[in-house]
Nucleic acid binder design. Structure first.
Lengths: 363, 363
DNA sequence: CTGAAAGCGCTAACAG
DNA sequence: CTGTTAGCGCTTTCAG
C-alpha cells in the first residue's frame, strides 16, 4: 500500500506538506503542489480511511437507517436511500446502511465508535424509540419524517397535512361532497407512523372546512383486502363519489375493482393518490396525485446534515422543514356524476362479484 | 471519549489484555476477563472503528453497490440490500452503500482507501465495466448476477434460465402451445442485463423442446405501453393462450387489459410471472409465479464473501452459485380454452375502446 | 511557505 | 496467562 510518507519522499517534501496539499488547509506554493500532485498520481496514492478517521476524528461517513419492514412506500424508500448516497458523495461523505432492526443500539454503536459522524433516520414514528438517543447530546441527526415532538430535532418531510388538504381541496373544488380515504395498512397507523396520521388530519380538517363528508378506512395491500374495504365503503356511504388513496399496493386493485363494478374513472368516481409520481403516472388510469418527493427529501436531509456538520454553531441548520406538496392533475379526477335517481343505470350496477363483471355502460 | 487505555487502567490490567478480552485471540483468566468486562460496561467503552481499522487493516465494512437507475425490480433491490445489511451484521460487518453512478472508480476508492474490505455488486451486466477492477487482483467481491464471463469471479444469482424453462414447462404441461413473453423494458435488454437474457434463453430452449411457439416482446412499464404490446401480440399471434411476464410494472396493466378485452384469467388465458412473491400474491389475480428469492440472494452473497474473507485460501468459496427457482401455482394458470369456433361467445366479446385495439378472432 | 514531531486508539508481535 | 512496546497512516500543532 502506498502511504503518504512514500508520496512525500517521492516528491521530496515532508509528510505534512502532502497532507496540506490534500486538505488545502494551508497555502502551498504552486510548484510544490504540482510535484506532490504528480507523485500522488504517479504512485496511485490513496489516503487510508481509518488512519484519517483516527487522526482527525472525522470519518466522513453518514449512517442511514432504513426500515426493515417493507410494507409501504418501498420504491420511495429506495429512492430516498439512493438520493442520500448521491448527495452525500457530492459532499465527500459515504453512507453506511443500517436496518431498523437493530434500533437505537445501532445508532449508539456506529456513532460511539466513530464509524459514522452523523445519522439520517427514515420511517420515523410519532414516538420513535430512537429519539432519546438523539436528544441526549446524541450525534448530529436528521429525521426524514416528523415525530410527535420534534423539539430540538432536525427534521425534513413532506407536509403531509397540506398534502391531505390539497387532495380534499381539489376534489371539493370539482364538486365532490362525499369522499372516502383508503389508507395504509392498519399496522402503519397502529405504530403511529407520522405521515399517515398527518395526512389524515389534513384530509379531515379540510373536509370539515369545505363541508365535505369524509370516511377513512385503513387497508391492507392486495386485491382481496381492497375489495373488502371497498364493499364496506359503498355500503356505508353509497354517496361516495371520490377516493383518496394513500397506499401504493391498493391503487391498482382499487382501479380494477371500480372498473369491474361498473364505475368509470373519472366519470363516475374520482381517484386522487398520495404516492410516488412514477406510480401515479403509470397506473392503469393515470392518477391525479400528490407526489412524494423522494429525491428532494434525501437531498435536503443530507444538505442539512452537512450544513450542521460544517458549522455546528449555526442555528438555522436545525428545526423542522416541511416541503410543500404539489398536486398533479392527471386523468383520474373530474366532477362528480349527476345525482343518481331511482331506476338510473348506476344504481343497477352489479354488486361486484362476477369476476370479469358485465361491462360498464360507457358513461 | 473512553479509550482502551482508560479501560485498562480502570481494570488494573494492560491495554493488550483488554484488547484480547475483546478479540478473544488469546486465553484470558476468568477473573481478569470479568473485571475487564465490568470496566468496559461501567465506562461505556466503545472501540474506535478507525483506530481498529488502522491497526488491523481490517475495516469490517462491506461495500454494496446498488443500481442508480430504478427501472426494474425495485422492491427486490431494496429487499436484497436490506438482507445484505442484516446478514453482514450477523457476521460483525457493516455495509457501505454505493450507487452505481460512480461506477468502477467508486470500487477503487472505497477499496483502495481501506474503507471497505470487500464488495457486493448488484445489477450486474453481461459485460460489466466494473469487472476489470475485480479481476485484476481486486478486492474480494461477490456479484449478485451473472456476467457473460464469470471466470475467476464469485457470483450468486437465481438460475433464470431454469426459471424461464420452468414457466414454459408449467404452461406446456397444461396444454398451451403458443406463449407470449412480456419482458423488461427495451433498455434492460439493450444494456445486456444478464438475468433478462438468461430468462429468455430458458424460455426459448424449453419452448423449442416442447414444441411450443414463443413470442417475446420487451415492454416499457405502464398501462399504455402494455396496451400497445398486447395489441401487437394478439395481432401477430391470435392463437396465444398464455403469457409469461417478467416486468413488474407490466403485471397489473396486463391483467387489467385482459379483463377489459373480455379474456378471463385463467379460463381464457394463463399468466405466469417472474417476480417477487409478494407482488405475485397480491396481484388482482393471484399469479402463478417463479419467485425472485431476494433475501436468499442477499444472504448468500454475504455468506460467501465472509467465507472468503475468513479463509482466503479455501477454493470452494469462489465460483458461480445459481439458486434453483421454484414455481408457485396460484390462480392465474390453467389449461387453455378449447379451440374457439366461429360464432362462439368469446369472439363476440365487445371490442371495448380503441385502446386495446380491435379484438382478434379467437384462436 | 515548509518541516519536524507528537499523537489519534488500537493490534500484535515479542517477552516473560 | 499477562505486560511492554512498536507501529498502523494520517493530521495538526509548534517551529522556522
Amino acid at each position: 500500500m502506498v502511504t503518504l510518507a512514500e508520496v512525500a519522499r517521492h516528491a521530496g517534501v515532508s509528510a505534512s506538506t502532502v497532507s496540506y496539499v490534500l486538505s488545502g488547509k494551508r497555502p502551498i506554493s504552486d510548484p510544490t503542489r504540482r510535484r506532490v500532485r504528480a507523485s500522488i498520481e504517479r504512485l496511485g496514492y490513496q489516503p487510508h480511511a481509518g488512519a484519517r478517521a483516527l487522526a482527525s476524528s472525522r470519518s466522513r461517513i453518514i449512517a442511514l437507517m432504513v426500515p426493515l419492514r417493507t410494507d409501504m412506500y418501498v420504491p420511495v424508500m429506495l429512492e430516498i436511500a439512493v438520493a442520500v448516497a448521491t448527495a452525500a458523495r457530492a459532499h465527500g461523505y459515504d453512507v453506511l446502511l443500517l436496518t431498523g432492526e437493530e434500533g437505537p443500539s445501532a445508532l449508539r454503536r456506529v456513532t460511539g465508535s466513530g464509524l459514522a459522524e452523523a445519522v439520517i433516520l427514515m420511517d420515523v414514528q410519532l414516538d420513535d424509540e430512537r429519539l432519546p438517543v438523539l436528544r441526549a447530546a446524541g450525534p448530529p441527526a436528521v429525521l426524514v419524517g416528523l415525530p410527535a415532538d420534534p423539539a430540538g430535532l432536525n427534521c425534513v418531510d413532506l407536509d403531509f397535512t397540506a398534502a391531505g388538504a390539497l387532495c380534499v381541496e381539489h376534489l371539493a373544488g370539482l364538486g365532490h361532497r362525499e369522499i372516502a380515504v383508503i389508507g395504509e395498512a392498519p399496522g402503519v397507523y397502529a405504530r403511529h407512523t407520522g405521515f399517515a396520521e398527518r395526512t389524515l388530519r389534513g384530509l379531515r380538517d379540510r373536509a370539515a372546512e369545505s363541508g365535505v363528508r369524509l370516511l377513512h378506512r385503513p387497508c391492507e395491500g392486495g386485491h382481496d383486502a381492497v375489495a373488502g374495504v371497498l364493499a364496506r365503503i359503498f355500503d356505508e356511504r353509497p354517496g361516495v363519489s371520490a377516493f383518496v388513496v394513500q397506499n401504493e399496493t391498493a391503487i391498482e386493485p382499487l382501479l380494477s375493482l371500480l372498473r369491474r363494478t361498473g364505475r368509470a374513472v373519472p366519470e363516475d368516481v374520482s381517484v386522487v393518490a398520495v404516492c410516488a409520481d412514477q406510480i401515479a403516472a403509470q397506473a392503469s388510469v393515470p392518477l391525479t396525485s400528490v407526489a412524494i418527493p423522494a429525491q428532494e427529501l434525501g437531498r435536503r436531509a443530507v444538505d442539512r446534515l452537512v450544513a450542521g456538520l460544517t458549522r455546528p454553531d449555526a442555528e438555522d441548520t436545525a428545526g423542522v422543514e416541511l416541503l410543500t406538496p404539489a398536486l398533479t392533475v392527471r386523468d383520474s379526477s373530474g366532477p362528480p356524476p349527476p345525482p343518481a335517481r331511482p331506476g338510473s343505470p348506476r344504481s343497477a350496477a352489479p354488486p361486484h362479484g362476477a369476476r370479469a363483471g358485465s361491462r360498464p355502460p360507457g358513461s
